[in-house]
Simulated assay, not measured.
Amino acid sequence: MGKLLFWIVLIIAVLFVARIAARMAAARQAGEPAQGRGKAARSAPAPAAPESMVRCAHCGIHLPRSEAVLVNGMTWCSTEHSTLGPARK
């Protein structure tokens, strides 16, 4: 049982060393320094800030403020709807 445990630990150690060597080789090929690639380098980019949504005064759909058309203080989904005017209830 002791020999089996020894071989398992040895195999895990060899795989660990091989993984470190592969990362260092990849860093050299990419032109990056092998050290200094900490947690910040591996983290995913921050998601974009959420954008406020507005409602079209004619059809009532919601769309991002950056895509809306602003005419006379009212928001519209398109220039066609801005010419048609607000929806009648």
Rank of each mutant, 00 (worst) to 15 (best):
E67F: 06
V69E: 08
A49D: 07
E32H: 12
R28K: 14
A87P: 03
E51G: 00
E80Q: 05
A25H: 06
R23N: 14
G60N: 03
S78F: 07
A27N: 14
S52D: 09
A27E: 10
Q35S: 11
A18T: 13
T79V: 09
P64C: 00
A57T: 06
A22N: 11
G38A: 00
R28H: 13
A25S: 09
G73M: 00
A21K: 03
A40C: 00
V71M: 05
M1C: 10
A13E: 06
M24P: 00
C59G: 02
E51L: 02
A57Y: 08
G85C: 03
E80G: 06
M74Q: 14
K89C: 00
I12Q: 05
K3W: 09
W76M: 01
G36H: 08
V69H: 07
A40D: 13
A44C: 00
I11Q: 06
G2S: 13
A30I: 00
S66W: 04
L10D: 00
R19E: 08
E51Y: 02
A21F: 09
W76E: 02
R88F: 06
V54T: 01
E32R: 12
E67L: 04
A40V: 11
I8H: 04
Q35K: 08
P86Q: 13
S82W: 08
L4T: 15
L10G: 04
A57C: 03
H62L: 14
M24W: 14
R19A: 13
H62E: 15
A48V: 14
V69A: 01
V54W: 00
P47S: 08
V71Q: 11
A18Q: 10
I11F: 12
I8V: 14
K89V: 08
A13P: 01
G36V: 09
L5F: 13
A22S: 12
